[in-house]
């Protein structure tokens, strides 16, 4: 199992009214998991990134992310949304799957960055997406996500 994600970092059928709320709820999961030294600094980094261009990457997926000194250890939190939410995606489709990435400002190894690039590349895989849409529990979703890191 890759430590970057675990079932405590996964929320299936997350309820939220807008993307800011989705981001905050997922950031709280990362915080509770012990990956952050400053929740606020991390959140600021995520919102600053979000302001540049939307992280809605199409195909109902968004990957908000922040690189910050407030991150102690890299993590990925995943939410499947109860209701699709607008994310200013370039294909104008509302988002159903959200991966929130937390990356330390500086790190000794590229390991976590490789993990995140692997994740990004797999988001375009339709099977991967469909399996996540159908996952029955956080444990199962975690297993699906873990398979791409093997």
């Amino acid at each position: 199992m890759n430590k970057i994600i675990n079932q405590d970092l996964i929320s299936l059928d997350l309820k939220a009214v807008n993307k800011d709320q989705v981001i905050k709820k997922l950031a709280q999961l990362i915080n509770q998991n012990g990956n952050l030294s400053s929740y606020q600094d991390y959140l600021t980094a995520v919102f600053e990134r979000e302001e540049k261009t939307s992280t809605g990457v199409g195909r109902e997926i968004a990957i908000p992310h922040g690189k910050s000194a407030g991150v102690v250890e890299a993590a990925v939190a995943f939410a499947r949304l109860a209701e699709p939410i607008g994310w200013e995606s370039f294909d104008n489709e509302a988002v159903r799957l959200v991966f929130l990435l937390a990356v330390p400002a500086e790190s000794e190894s590229n390991q976590h960055l490789k993990i995140l690039s692997t994740l990004s590349r797999n988001l375009l895989n339709e099977d991967f997406k469909n399996e996540l849409l159908q996952a029955e529990s956080a444990a199962i979703a975690n297993e699906i996500i873990q398979t791409i890191f093997v």
């Binding site: 690039s117 590349r121 988001l123």
Partner: peptide
């Protein structure tokens, strides 16, 4: 891309596919 975390790799994957 600016953060070099996600879109760089998504774009690479899209073009390769």
């Amino acid at each position: 891309c600016p953060t070099g975390v996600a879109h760089t790799y998504l774009a690479a994957e899209s073009l390769e596919k």
